[in-house]
Design a binder for these strands. Structure first.
Lengths: 224, 224
DNA sequence: CCGTTCTTGTTAGGTCTTTGACAGGACCAA
DNA sequence: TTGGTCCTGTCAAAGACCTAACAAGAACGG
């Protein structure tokens, strides 16, 4: 992934850095809300459990956000990162599939706070259609394509049953969605210009299990 | 993280490999259920969008699971990976915080299939206590420590409000939990022998946004 | 029996990522 | 002013990770 930094130079931003940018932003918004005005790379890095030099290195890809001797100003850093990540202008999204997971995500307030207002929820189940979650009504799936076109929705959350995942994704993409956040435990195939992010919840659990299993077992083997 | 492989040699298994093991297992279980008996590194790797050599390299840390010339046998590979990851023996877990996200996770059937049966759900809200989710009753939070001790629970899912996250986590750990799957948007501090995995849902969304933002903008910059 | 075509295990080399080190700016106190 | 302390941007070296390449085993057909 390439970007142009604020000095007009072109850089290839490593994936590892991209993955950390949201962490920085998330933490900085918390600081901002707490009234903190300035933060040093060391403070921010320590709170995220990474090295300060890595944080500065990451920022360096974008030309840096301060100057030598001056710590970062939270009120400048937040909008700068928001712009880089692409949440400076709110990114409206929809949730397709209003099962328990879909409803759970619809109730998650954090998304809105970080620039992803929920605009619509869709499901085929007539018993769910008409219900409201935090003011957003659940609409019939058949209305989804029209809704996406009309509101210019670019990001869709996929929480439908596995067996219809690919079909529903196709409909979303045909209607104009370019980013799919896939919670179904299957791979979905898409045209190359569409980004899919698979959120395999069970993977997180298994990583946890791998590590906890080795605790208390044989101390000689524990080392990470 | 170090392990001993099946040839008696000690290896340091890279984090990157550990992160992929659950993906392998997940895919293999799907194949197994579909009745597939054999699978080659190329087939498996392609379906996961990685290189075959990487997959073999990963397996190599554990001594390999076949021999030159013979593809992997699904029925042998699945239990072998289960044992390595630590889900050969089911890992019972609890969910603490029965809000919408907690309920959504409690309804997610996949966990059980992968070796993580849900044994208990806890919340302070009297309106929730007594409800059942898939046969598992929601119990008062005050009963959690006793329940953890009695049932030997090692893994807990944390889906409580942010402001009580640290306090509830402390209670879980004091009762014997050694793996915390943290869904709250805050860091929780724990003793070193406890593993915490932070599941920052918003981070996934922001990564998606970072990439979709650059699509269709300036094609010269798109390259990853 | 031999050649072809599939495999895996193994390793060396290249690539990506992290880290430590340092130059130089800013601020403060004496 | 001077010295001390904090800070960032920058880069080179070290470390972690991935990949291409290949030896060698297995299966099959002729």
């Amino acid at each position: 992934m390439r970007v142009v930094n604020n000095k007009g130079k072109k850089f290839r931003v490593p994936d590892a850095t991209i993955l950390r940018l949201p962490l920085y932003l998330d933490k900085l918004i918390l600081l901002q809300q707490a009234g903190v005005k300035e933060v040093s790379s060391r403070q921010l890095a320590t709170s995220l459990d990474i090295k300060a030099s890595q944080l500065r290195h990451d920022f360096h890809y974008f030309g840096g956000f301060s100057k030598p001797g001056r710590p970062y100003q939270v009120d400048k850093l937040v909008p700068a990162l928001e712009e880089i990540i692409g949440v400076d202008i709110p990114v409206p999204m929809i949730i397709v599939g209003a099962g328990h997971l879909g409803q759970g995500l619809a109730n998650y307030r954090n998304f809105e706070r970080l620039g992803f207002p929920l605009r619509g929820i869709f499901d085929v189940d007539p018993k769910l259609v008409g219900l409201e979650i935090r003011g957003v009504p659940i609409r019939p799936l058949s209305e989804m394509p029209g809704f996406v076109k009309e509101h210019g929705i670019k990001v869709g959350v996929l929480t439908v049953p596995v067996n219809v995942a690919q079909d529903v994704a196709n409909q979303m993409i045909a209607a104009g969605v370019v980013g799919v956040w896939n919670f179904t435990p299957t791979d979905i195939r898409t045209p190359p210009q569409v980004i899919v992010r698979n959120e395999r919840l069970a993977v997180g659990l298994m990583c946890l299990s791998f590590k906890t299993k080795r605790i208390g077992q044989n101390d000689e083997l524990r080392q990470d």
